[in-house]
Design a protein around this nucleic acid. Structure first.
Lengths: 212, 212
DNA sequence: TAGATTGTTAATCGATTAACAATC
DNA sequence: TAGATTGTTAATCGATTAACAATC
């Protein structure tokens, strides 16, 4: 029976399930048991069954799961069957790399606009999009109704930008800045990417290795 | 009393403590209590004290913590007082952005080499470094002894690359590919960055918002 | 049918929170 | 000293693992 509130730990595993099932499907697998999947992914079979059962019953006793069906179910759960229009704020090194490196279509989004305020960057091509002047942002939002935004701007500019974006209908933030988007704004979701913190934990673990 | 084995949850919070304490220090704070820090960071005071006590006693009853001392203690715990030589494999969009966007010195690393196999990329300037041909990798390692590596290469090339790097003395991987670095290699640490998975969870949460 | 494997409940484990004596 | 706040133990909460009846 499906649960109503899903824990963060489960949510974080879903994209990985989706990826692994995609690979299995590409390799011609038709069925898979929780046990075999658990061995491939380095999890326990129990955990996998518990995770799936948060959302419904996708398997069959004695058989396992149909790879293709399960994948498409998880895709639907993740909202990958809909593409949410998304914009990028800040087309510096990082913003540009994100825009061209990520396959937005597979991830439930459609990148429809890129903005910067640096005159040297405005007009540049990023993927198939031309970087627009930030002054055009509000008009663009009225016309194209983006719902999600990537923040690749300096931390100092983040607070005002978030307020502006929320006022213009943005509900989802993929946040590469260290600015803490207050979730007291209602009906807003935020995913923070702290690349620096990620590298810092690597430093910690490397140093713990040495001192063992 | 300091613990010997630190949980992953604690480790992931350390860089954030370090950042917040840095900001406090910059703003002239001399002391801070676990209670005030907890309010700023959105944690509980209990958790903060528990976290710090994994590593020792850094506070003073009735007073709190000295901001600057605490920050430098956490910096030492994270290994930020040492700079580990690091190389980057793959100087495409993403690799280039990482190399120029991240402040390696603050994170315990020193980026000393960038490699690619694409002739159009070799020779290009990335930050203050010139992209080298991948064929020079082994000689470079013998001479400069890098210990950490960033993987920004295609997934298909990852397995062989990891083996080669381990053979040449690399012990820490900052892995942007989806290749699962088997941690059966001993004395190896890995930090995975799955940007696509991160975006996918945003899609999930955005869609859950709508259906509430 | 017999064997396999799920869905689900119960047991365990670990992380977070609460409480408070120690002490600055 | 009195007040504040730590370090640390105990209680709670949540997530993972184990077990097994249901069933394909």
């Amino acid at each position: 029976m499906a649960k109503d509130s899903i824990s963060n730990s489960v949510i974080r595993r879903l994209p990985r399930y989706y990826r692994f099932l995609g690979e299995l499907e590409n390799n011609g697998y038709v069925r898979i048991s929780s046990r075999e999947l658990s061995e491939r992914m380095g999890l326990t079979a129990s955990q996998i069954r518990q995770d799936f059962n948060c959302f419904g019953e996708f398997g069959q006793q004695g058989y396992g799961y149909n790879v293709s069906d399960l994948r498409s179910e998880i895709g639907k759960i993740l909202g990958l069957d809909v593409q949410t229009p998304m914009i990028l704020l800040g087309a510096g090194n990082l913003g540009t790399a994100i825009a061209s490196h990520i396959e937005f279509e597979n991830k439930g989004f459609d990148l429809i606009g890129v903005f910067d305020k640096n005159p040297e960057i405005i007009g540049k091509e990023v993927g198939s999009l031309k970087v627009k002047n930030l002054t055009e942002l509000e008009d663009f939002c009225k016309e194209n109704k983006p719902v999600a935004a990537i923040l690749c701007i300096p931390m100092g500019a983040a607070e005002k930008m978030v307020d502006l974006l929320i006022k213009n209908g943005i509900k989802a933030f993929w946040n590469y800045t260290h600015y803490d988007i207050k979730e007291n704004h209602n009906d807003i979701v935020v995913e923070n990417v702290h690349l620096g913190d990620s590298l810092t934990t690597l430093s910690y673990r490397l140093n713990s290795l040495d001192s063992e």
